[in-house]
């Protein structure tokens, strides 16, 4: 498991977590640690609880037992106002974007700024435009409605909203799912670039093997209701756990690996 790290450098610490829906236990005795500045991916087969874990960390789902610390603060049983303040410190990109359909892209990005700060409206619009540009959208995107955006642009607009409050921590739920290879590659680049220039810590759920090779520092493999392997990609694919072997030994996984090796 994770090496012992300086406590100040641990952004997310999940310990002995259990999550269940009714009688169905999704996660049990799960441990995970994410350090500052890391890009960590959660992978695993469908139904292995990746999204459940992510939703538990971002306080959308109440776990049955265990402990989750964000920035050193325990979130199980956290008070309403402390949770509100904590929410301003991370951004979340939902799988379908989850942009508010009644607002333009600019107003979507402005929503967190309006809720969490007291900045004047003119200034909020300026910050929103900057975030839209940071997400790599063209200049006219701010006035568009979510329904007018293509899949790739939608993800970028949602990323701009996730970045609105300059969070230190960014969560991505299948950021490249449904994108064409070129858009997916460009999105990966964007994540790397933003991580480096803004000093972000990134946690992503993904099935995209190319993303795993290109973007991540460490990959946590979920199976048997817990993390069965947590290592950088080159080490993880050598892992002897049968689930991990099965996952990375398909022809698609091999092709992605070969491409990653060629790129290096």
């Amino acid at each position: 498991m994770a090496l012992a790290a300086d406590p100040a450098e641990v952004v997310i610490a999940v310990r002995d977590l259990r999550a269940q829906f009714g009688a169905a236990v999704i996660l049990d005795h799960l441990d995970l640690e994410v350090r500052r500045g890391e890009v960590v991916a959660l992978v695993g087969g469908s139904g292995s609880g990746k999204t459940t874990l992510l939703r538990a960390i971002i306080m959308l789902l109440r776990p049955a037992a265990g402990s989750i610390q964000l920035f050193g603060q325990e979130i199980l049983g956290i008070g309403e106002s402390a949770a509100f303040r904590l929410r301003s410190r991370f951004g979340m990109l939902f799988q379908q974007g989850a942009l508010f359909s009644s607002l333009t892209v600019r107003d979507n990005v402005a929503v967190p700024l309006r809720e969490h700060t007291r900045l004047p409206a003119r200034y909020i619009a300026e910050i929103a435009d900057l975030k839209i540009a940071l997400a790599g959208l063209p200049a006219d995107a701010g006035d568009k409605w979510p329904r007018e955006l293509s899949g790739g642009m939608l993800k970028r607009a949602a990323l701009a909203r996730a970045l609105a409050l300059d969070p230190a921590l960014l969560f991505l739920d299948e950021p490249t799912a449904g994108l064409d290879p070129v858009s997916a590659g460009a999105f990966d680049e964007l994540v790397v670039q933003l991580k480096e220039s803004l000093g972000l810590t990134v946690v992503m759920v993904t099935h995209d093997l190319d993303s795993l090779w290109r973007v991540t520092d460490r990959v946590a493999f979920l199976g048997e209701k817990r993390v069965v392997g947590y290592a950088p990609m080159p080490e993880l694919i050598a892992h002897e756990h049968p689930l991990i072997r099965a996952y990375f030994e398909g022809p698609r996984a091999r092709a992605a690996r070969e491409q990653a090796c060629r790129a290096k």
Partner: peptide
């Protein structure tokens, strides 16, 4: 240096940013 890098990124991206019609 890292602040300068961020400033340069913002300056560059702001040049391409749109404004409210």
């Amino acid at each position: 240096a890292e602040h300068q890098a961020l400033l340069d990124l913002v300056r560059e991206r702001r040049a391409t940013a749109g404004e409210a019609r």
